[in-house]
Amino acid sequence: MPDQTVLSLRDVTLSFGPKIIQKNISLDVRKGSIFAVMGGSGCGKSTLLKSMIGLLRPSVGEYHVGNENYWAGTDAHRTDLNHRFGVLFQSGALWSSMTIGENIALPLQMFTDLKPPVIRRLVELKLGFVGMLQAIDLYPSEISGGMRKRAGLARALALDPDILFFDEPSAGLDPITSARLDDLILNLRDGLGATIVIVSHELSSLFHIADDGIFLDAKTKIPIAHGSPRDLRDTCTDPQVHAFMHRERDDEEGNT
């Protein structure tokens, strides 16, 4: 089993200067799984994601990607490892002075020797996956928030990464688009064999897609539960996790 772990954190503490955000984080993300990072607003989910994509060095603890110690190597080595990552940022983070197509083409232009027509074809494909072909020549300021999310997702797929990080992919999307996005994420996992780490508040989507996870607590600043959202919903006795998992569940049952 251990060789199946793609990402692992050991006793990691995350802090901004003296301000500790989360401590004692240990987790293993299995290959091909969809790993959910859950918790109340402001508890450090985005910060945890940030540390996993190499933007924030943990003040304590170790981070392994595959068999490699992420922070032990050189910058160049980290850049190589980062090419295994595809990231969808919370706000999309599209480069505003480029069209959607150019946004997706840029990593391909920078890191492959492919010719422009080939790159175009791949850009077209990635946008096709997220149903955004018609927006290829538009600028980020000309499309809606949900479309920006999807374009960000297409950009995350640009280099065919095997580990994807999504920060609240369905926040701000309508239920239909959001459900479609869930299916897309499952398709990408099954189709590309990618491993996915996802930060989300959308319980219905978490129950649907995630098969492992961690629950961070804002007050005590430590993870308080590990496991898939479904299991946490059904078996976890921690009152906070219970409240988080059930408030929405009641709504959901009322609706369906």
Binding site: G131, L133, Q134, A135, I136, L184, D190, G191, L192
Partner: peptide, 17 residues
Amino acid sequence: PMRQLLELLPEAPDDPV
């Protein structure tokens, strides 16, 4: 896996804006 990905793609895409 191939089928799932291929099914996401439109066979006759709309004209781009």
